[in-house]
Design a protein around this nucleic acid. Structure first.
Lengths: 270, 270
DNA sequence: CTTATAACG
DNA sequence: CGTTGTAAG
């Protein structure tokens, strides 16, 4: 059991940037430098590393790595860390998942950080045709991370889960029960994780309503805070012992999502 | 033979707007109202009539007609006239031409105005693969308008010819002899028209160099006037008797082309 | 470089 | 509504 607040906590952040190149033009670089973060996970990078400005693909004083999708301009995750990760895994060993640049599992000593862009359930025709793929992805990653927990790692899973867990997690729950992102079967997947002991770090510290991480770009609803909480940092029980705070940075602009994160006792690494 | 300056001349204008919807946002409507024109031909409308704001698809005090391409967002010509045309022909009776919205031949009494968007010779791979199509179009229209002349009409042909005729008509003639727009075989098509008696109205009145109607959008060359004169009003000999002036409105912004036009004795109609 | 499109979110 | 890719100019 660690001694709490023995040192100043380190910050681990996650942000779906909705296109890193576009976000870069809106000040992503300044945000990164001012973030005070030790580790930053990005989702929806939507670029190959060599399409990204060098200051962001290989920034000074960071270890950066990217896992793009095969399809250009689509999906893709990226990880910045001030210390070098021991290794990064990007494969779930199933082509339909691994071709879409959705997962980075980075090891830093005893800490494992999974940076994840869970699939959107919307299909081509604004239907829910991609929900089965999304649920399969949830299950495949769940099995992988349960194994990682059992191996002794302290695990954080952060990213865009594309699912609001409970009615409190979206502004219009009644209207969206048949919308992907709040389908009963999607919420049940989150339930499975929590039932297995994973902790929704933000909800652990703040039971307040109206705390969202994504707002549709249509109709200017962000100004009215008509949003969804679909970005999370989940902690395994062993990791949760080191989590001192969880944050939602609703004021940060540059994407349709805002950054989220946790503050952690640095003892988590050793 | 008309009496010159017996009445104030009427103005007939032509403009490749490079997307009427985009041009509309840059003040096309104000330009149209302030133009003092009797007839205005547009090229590269790049929209179906019902995609165009009503003020421009059915403007008050104008008779407007459009001939869009089958392919969305591509090519398309449009004509505004303060008096109703007797009729408008849009077909060259060859599908590969007529599907691309390139011609309107409007009759106003004894005056026939052909509003034309000649093909660009560039193919997909920045090659000259569409030059043969372009030359075929030139020839097909030439035959059609020669016939119209012989029928007794006073004919004006205005639009984006996509060809600079002589070295004086572009800023970098030496560098562009192998570029579509200044290929010998393209210039020869213009020669054919002039040899048949058509008059390049602008050149008739102004032998000056550095008079251009199009500037590449790349590298900001318009500020340096590195351009091409590829938009013309040609007049048949019978029409030329009524042409009192020809203009290039280089200062008008809103497209990569600028408007051009002629001033005509109104006796041309009767 | 800019206007369009479509896919995706 | 906005990002991205692609076609076209």
């Amino acid at each position: 059991m660690p001694t709490r607040r023995s040192k100043s906590p380190i910050r681990i952040l996650s942000w779906n940037v909705n296109g890193l190149r576009a976000c870069a033009k809106k000040g992503f670089g300044d945000w990164l430098e001012g973030s005070g973060a030790e580790i930053v996970g990005l989702q929806e990078v939507r670029a190959e590393p060599d399409q990204i400005p060098t200051e962001l693909s290989q920034p000074e004083h960071w270890h950066a790595s990217f896992s793009p999708a095969e399809r250009k301009g689509y999906s893709g995750v990226g990880l910045y860390a001030r210390r070098a990760p021991d290794r990064i895994h990007t494969a779930l060993d199933e082509t339909r998942f691994d071709s879409e640049g959705r997962v980075q599992i980075a090891r830093f000593g005893r800490l494992a950080v999974a940076n994840v862009y869970f699939p959107n359930g919307n299909g081509k025709d604004r239907d829910n045709s991609r929900v089965p793929y999304k649920l399969d992805f949830y299950r495949r990653l769940f099995e992988r991370l349960q194994r990682l927990r059992r191996s002794g790692a302290r695990v954080l899973v952060m990213g865009d889960f594309n699912t609001a867990h409970r009615e409190i997690d979206l502004a219009r729950p009644k209207a969206n029960r048949r919308t992907s992102g709040f389908l009963p079967e999607e919420c049940a997947e989150i339930d499975r994780w929590l039932d297995a002991g994973w902790i929704d770090t933000y909800r652990h510290f703040d039971p307040s309503p109206d705390r969202y991480t994504w707002w549709s770009q249509r109709f200017g609803v962000r100004a009215k805070n008509v949003g969804w909480r679909i970005d999370y940092v989940l902690a395994s029980p062993a990791a949760m012992k080191f989590v001192e705070n969880a944050m939602i940075y609703s004021d940060v602009q540059g994407s349709d999502h805002c950054p989220i994160g946790v503050e952690i006792d640095p003892g988590i690494f050793v």
